[in-house]
């Protein structure tokens, strides 16, 4: 069990549209993997399969010591098992999805208090520490609608971290942000990577992927076309499809 995340033969289709065809992926502890590819390539679906927000139809997902097998007559995990499985992965969404009826600190406390049953005082201390870490100590008691997009996303990262997950999943975490706010979120993600968090990042920020990710996985039409060390895949892609995709970004530096 030297891998933190192990995906084997994952399959998923929506109706007649096949989104994932036999995907296999291994991630070592502390590794950062960037999933890149055109829209509709299945990268977001793959990420959502990893915490069961989308139920795979076949294959196997193991995160840490928790493993589920799908399809082939194996029983679907019950809602309680699914919830326990998800609590071990932190997810950051494109549109933040903060809880608007809770203050910033309550957003971050919600997981530990309501899922782990942690005493409020303890959860409050953890939440404040995490908010300090993402640079939002001055915003703990405001409601999310008073925050900028970049601040919202940093709260969302703190909220996911509060569950002390074994892995963090980022689903286009900066795609909905104004360009000048992207940097502050990428900065937090960079720090996390440096601390040794295992991360899978779906992103269009190619230069960030090149700099921060250990490995880059390029997907198209539900299959992994090419994968390898980040700099190799981005600087000298071997596949024609990868080259074509990356050529759209090169003029952006």
């Amino acid at each position: 069990m030297s891998y933190r995340i192990e995906v084997t033969g994952l399959r998923k289709s929506f109706g007649t549209l096949t989104v994932l065809r036999d995907i296999s992926l291994k991630v070592e502890p502390g590794q950062v993997v960037a999933l890149i590819g055109p829209s509709g390539s299945g990268k977001s679906t793959l990420l959502r399969c990893l915490n069961l927000l989308v139920m795979p139809e076949g294959g196997q997902v193991r995160i840490g010591g928790d493993c589920f097998t799908f399809g082939g007559g194996s029983k679907m995990p019950g809602t309680k098992e699914q919830a326990r499985f998800r609590s071990n992965t932190g997810m950051v969404f494109q549109h933040f999805n903060l809880f608007p009826h809770m203050t910033v600190v309550q957003n971050v406390m919600e997981g530990p208090v309501s899922v782990k049953g942690m005493p409020k005082r303890e959860a409050d201390a953890i939440a404040r520490k995490l908010l300090a870490k993402v640079g939002l100590s001055d915003k703990v008691d405001v409601f999310p609608n008073k925050l900028s997009g970049g601040q919202k996303q940093r709260v969302a990262i703190a909220r996911a971290l509060a569950m002390e997950p074994e892995v963090m999943l980022f689903d286009e975490a900066t795609s909905a942000l104004d360009p000048e706010l992207v940097g502050e979120v990428l900065g937090v993600m960079r720090d996390l990577a440096a601390e040794g968090m295992t991360m899978i990042i779906v992103t269009h920020e190619i230069s960030f992927a090149r700099e921060v990710a250990d490995r880059v996985v390029f997907m198209r039409d539900g299959v992994i076309v090419e994968e390898g060390p980040a700099r190799e895949v981005i600087d000298t892609p071997q596949q024609e499809a990868t080259r074509t995709f990356l050529s759209h970004f090169h003029n952006r530096g």
């Binding site: 919830a83 899922v115 996911a160």
Partner: peptide, 23 residues
């Protein structure tokens, strides 16, 4: 209520019933 709210609750490890009640 936007489905992203339920997803965020589920992603934290809440059961669907708890997502309904808390979120």
């Amino acid at each position: 209520i936007d489905s992203g709210q339920s997803e965020a609750g589920m992603a934290l490890g809440m059961t669907p019933a708890r997502v309904m009640r808390r979120i």
